[in-house]
């Protein structure tokens, strides 16, 4: 679901940035107002879970792959606004360091995965279980259904963004300038995977981690308790990091994430001009790998780099926020 650069026109990217910007601004304001500064560091752990979840690729017959996002999971643990910020920063790291998702299409990716997914998932889960926290079984059912609908809503948005490119941007010969597939192809292609295996992966990831966290670290989402990452959560993160090479078992490229050299072989028959001559951002660790070393090693190292950076970023933000709030309280 990570839309690469050049698949969306710059105009679409600008519109998607404009659409994602209010979500970021409101989320930052809400988090500053509602989330205790000590809990901001927890957002880093949430972002780390999301980052790792996106590394577990699930194969689909036909050669395409997909993954869980974990946006609903963070939304249910820390709130949808915190989830919006966490997933956005995880996506930013993926784009800048690992070249997963484009720089220009960052706004579109954030709109789909950091805004639509957690908010839809959170709303559905709370609609199914209105008295959240009272009945754990009902909560888990709500979380499962919410995460399933959330990821499908996000996939549908991505499919529409891909599909409208052929309608809006064509060259003189009638060929698409950007994504060459229309809505009639992009929606079935994206939704087939997400309605089946990828949706299931999101449900399993959300419900399994949520159940584990509730059991092993019940204070994790309790805002009255001074935030400190519980040991079981740290162990779970470590286990997930060691297990990320499992994602390599899925061969093939996710739909809509092909390179310029792959696209004509997917059935398009040509390379759209926008993709052939578009921007090419050289990431530090492209595709989570090192040339000359085994893929599994690059994958684990990338997971460690991502998790460490997310924890550092959010712990610093939490520290600065807590300093500010202490000052505000003192002044008041």
């Amino acid at each position: 679901m990570h839309i690469p650069d050049n698949y969306l026109s710059p105009q679409t990217c600008a519109v998607m940035f404009a659409a994602a910007a209010p979500a970021w601004v409101i989320s930052v304001r809400k988090v500053k107002k509602e989330l205790p500064p000590e809990k901001v560091a927890m957002m880093g752990v949430g972002a780390a879970f999301s980052f790792l979840g996106m590394m577990f690729n699930v194969p689909l017959p036909g050669g395409t792959t997909g993954h869980a996002v974990g946006g609903t999971l963070i939304a249910l643990l820390l709130g949808p606004y915190a989830s919006c910020i966490s997933v956005s920063i995880a996506l930013l790291l993926q784009a800048l360091i690992f070249g997963d998702g484009g720089i220009l299409s960052f706004g579109a990716n954030c709109f789909n995965m950091a805004f639509v997914l957690p908010f839809v998932g959170y709303a559905i889960a709370h609609a199914i279980s209105p008295n959240w926290g009272k009945n754990k079984k009902r909560d888990l059912i709500g979380a499962g259904i919410g995460s399933y609908i959330g990821i499908n809503a996000a996939a549908l948005c991505a499919a529409i963004e891909f599909g409208i490119q052929t309608m809006l941007f064509k060259d003189a010969s009638g060929n698409a300038l950007y994504c060459p597939y229309g809505l009639n192809v992009s929606i079935p292609a994206m939704m087939a995977g997400h309605l089946t295996l990828f949706g299931l992966a999101e449900v399993v990831f959300t419900v399994a981690v949520l159940a584990f966290v509730w059991k092993a670290a019940p204070d994790f989402d309790n805002s009255t308790v001074k935030a400190k990452t519980a040991l079981p959560v740290k162990i779970l993160l470590g286990v997930l990091i060691c297990a990320v090479p499992v994602g390599l078992l899925a061969e093939g490229t996710a739909w809509g994430e092909w390179g310029a050299d792959e696209i004509s072989g997917t059935g398009a028959g040509y390379v759209p001009k926008g993709i052939a001559h578009g921007i090419n951002y050289p990431a530090l660790l492209p595709d989570y790998s090192f040339s000359g070393l085994p893929d599994w090693f690059g994958y684990i190292l990338s997971a460690v780099v991502g998790v460490a950076l997310l924890v550092i970023i959010f712990r610093i933000i939490s520290y600065i926020a807590s300093k500010g709030s202490r000052y505000d309280r003192a002044v008041a």
């Binding site: 560091a41 460690v304 780099v305 460490a308 950076l309 924890v311 550092i312 712990r315 610093i316 939490s318 520290y319």
Partner: peptide, 13 residues
């Protein structure tokens, strides 16, 4: 980086 992530936030800064 892992070692740094384990430092206190003020020391990280």
């Amino acid at each position: 980086l892992i070692r740094m992530a384990l430092l206190k936030p003020d020391r990280m800064i």
